[in-house]
């Protein structure tokens, strides 16, 4: 489903290279975990997947269902089923969350040639999804993420993911800022989306999240490259011994 080949990318403004020859393949139905020390380029990779223009790809390619997405803008990628749950979701004053959800859902439907949702149907879907995530529906009348706590923002990201039903989900440190109860609720939300035609990439620092969302593959990202891949036991090994050994091994 996703094939990243020898990807090199830099910060557009400064020209600093962050991703340095990264290779990664994720199949449909797979849950892949990406782990790595702070500053290794995990968030940068997620932004590049989503199409943020602060970064420039200088070499390599990203294929999604066999098709290069490098020339697509973020909206086109989203309409094709790509979703990024942000590490730091943005606050957008003045745009009511409900209005935002409606526009987002209907934009994607339109791009796929579907009819816009009827208002009652839309509200019903939002209420249901908010319910399973134990979110207060009234919160959604407020502007997008404005005044939300860290945990509420993360839940709101998962709410959007549930409503948009993407095919490739990238979760960037969704576990940070969540207490143990919230972690359980959010993980259940993600697990409910696991399906044979959907791939999920979970970016995290900690084994903790992977106890709830059990990955099929684990990849260690360091200095813009995947330096080691394995199964879920790799995450446990990292938890035990830290990154130092693997980094040395790769060097």
């Amino acid at each position: 489903m996703l094939e990243i080949k020898n990807l090199h990318a830099r910060i557009a403004e400064s020209g600093t290279e962050i991703i340095r020859g990264l290779n990664l393949t994720v199949k449909a139905g797979e849950v892949a975990a990406i782990m790595g020390p702070n500053g290794s380029g995990k968030s940068t990779l997620s932004y590049i997947l989503a199409g943020r223009d602060d970064y420039e790809v200088t070499e390599g390619d990203i294929l999604y269902n066999g098709e290069s997405i490098l020339e697509m803008d973020p909206a086109e990628r989203a309409a094709k089923g790509l979703f990024l749950a942000f590490q730091y979701p943005m606050e957008i004053p003045g745009v009511a969350t409900m209005e935002f959800l409606k526009v987002a859902m209907n934009s994607q439907r339109k791009a796929r040639g579907e009819e816009p949702l009827k208002v009652p149907d839309f509200i019903k879907r939002v209420k249901e999804a908010a319910g399973t995530l134990e979110m207060d529906f009234n919160m959604l009348k407020r502007p997008v993420n404005v005044g939300f706590s860290g945990g509420e923002k993360k839940r709101a990201e998962i709410l959007q993911m549930k409503l948009l039903e993407p095919k490739l989900c990238v979760l960037d440190e969704t576990d940070s800022g969540l207490d143990i109860d919230a972690l359980k609720i959010v993980s259940d939300g993600v697990n409910a989306l696991r399906s044979p035609d959907r791939a999920i990439i979970v970016i995290t620092h900690y084994q903790r999240l992977l106890d709830h969302i059990v990955p099929d593959t684990v990849h260690v990202l360091y200095k813009g490259q995947v330096i080691k891949s394995g199964d879920k036991s790799l995450a446990l090994e990292l938890e035990e011994n830290g990154y130092a050994g693997i980094i040395e091994e790769a060097a």
């Binding site: 803008d73 909206a75 989203a78 957008i92």
Partner: peptide
């Protein structure tokens, strides 16, 4: 630009996203 990226990352096309942000302002 960050707001614009966030809206577009949810599938809202650029023109609509800009319109939303201007109206919000």
């Amino acid at each position: 630009r960050n707001h614009l990226f966030y809206l577009m990352a949810r599938g809202v096309d650029e023109k609509t996203a800009r319109g939303l942000l201007v109206r919000a302002f």
